[in-house]
Amino acid sequence: KNAAQIVDEALNQGITLFVADNRLQYETSRDNIPEELLNEWKYYRQDLIDFLQQLD
């Protein structure tokens, strides 16, 4: 998997990933985040941060 796929997957589930103060953050109206997504975000944290910062 790559960062773009993970960001896309999150968006499809109503979750927006973004970077604030060099930390990976998310916004969602969901009550909870599936644990497998959280684990994936932790595992790919630096890739996601790098990818999202390139988009800014």
Results as ranks from 00 to 15, higher is better:
4 A>K: 14
31 D>I: 11
34 P>Q: 05
24 L>I: 07
7 V>R: 04
17 L>Y: 02
53 Q>W: 07
6 I>A: 00
47 D>L: 13
3 A>V: 09
15 I>Y: 09
48 L>R: 00
51 F>M: 03
43 Y>W: 11
55 L>K: 14
16 T>G: 04
39 N>G: 07
28 T>C: 05
50 D>N: 13
48 L>W: 01
5 Q>A: 08
8 D>R: 15
13 Q>Y: 14
21 D>M: 06
27 E>I: 15
11 L>W: 12
49 I>N: 02
38 L>I: 12
46 Q>I: 09
31 D>P: 12
9 E>R: 08
20 A>W: 12
31 D>G: 10
39 N>Q: 13
30 R>F: 06
55 L>R: 15
12 N>R: 15
25 Q>E: 09
4 A>H: 10
32 N>S: 14
5 Q>E: 07
5 Q>D: 08
7 V>S: 02
54 Q>E: 10
33 I>T: 03
37 L>H: 02
51 F>H: 07
50 D>H: 10
17 L>T: 02
7 V>A: 03
9 E>K: 06
31 D>V: 11
31 D>M: 09
21 D>K: 05
45 R>L: 14
29 S>Y: 11
56 D>E: 13
5 Q>P: 02
35 E>C: 08
19 V>W: 14
49 I>M: 09
54 Q>P: 09
38 L>T: 06
35 E>R: 08
2 N>K: 13
34 P>W: 03
35 E>A: 10
48 L>Q: 00
56 D>H: 13
5 Q>T: 09
2 N>P: 11
29 S>G: 08
5 Q>F: 05
16 T>V: 14
26 Y>S: 03
56 D>I: 12
20 A>N: 10
50 D>K: 12
17 L>D: 02
20 A>H: 13
47 D>T: 12
3 A>L: 07
35 E>N: 09
36 E>L: 07
29 S>N: 12
19 V>Q: 03
45 R>N: 11
1 K>Q: 04
50 D>M: 11
56 D>W: 07
23 R>S: 13
41 W>P: 00
13 Q>V: 08
29 S>C: 13
24 L>Q: 00
10 A>W: 04
37 L>C: 03
6 I>T: 02
51 F>Y: 15
35 E>F: 09
32 N>T: 14
1 K>G: 03
18 F>Q: 04
5 Q>Y: 05
23 R>M: 15
45 R>E: 15
10 A>L: 03
16 T>L: 13
54 Q>K: 14
10 A>Q: 01
35 E>I: 12
5 Q>I: 07
40 E>I: 10
26 Y>F: 09
37 L>S: 03
5 Q>N: 05
31 D>W: 06
33 I>H: 02
36 E>R: 09
26 Y>L: 03
16 T>H: 13
24 L>K: 00
40 E>P: 02
30 R>E: 07
47 D>S: 12
4 A>E: 07
9 E>G: 03
45 R>G: 07
26 Y>W: 15
33 I>F: 05
30 R>S: 08
11 L>V: 07
14 G>P: 01
21 D>Q: 07
29 S>V: 09
47 D>R: 09
15 I>V: 09
46 Q>C: 08
42 K>Q: 14
21 D>C: 13
20 A>Y: 12
31 D>K: 10
46 Q>H: 09
25 Q>F: 15
42 K>P: 02
46 Q>P: 04
34 P>V: 04
18 F>P: 02
52 L>K: 00
24 L>W: 02
31 D>Y: 08
36 E>V: 09
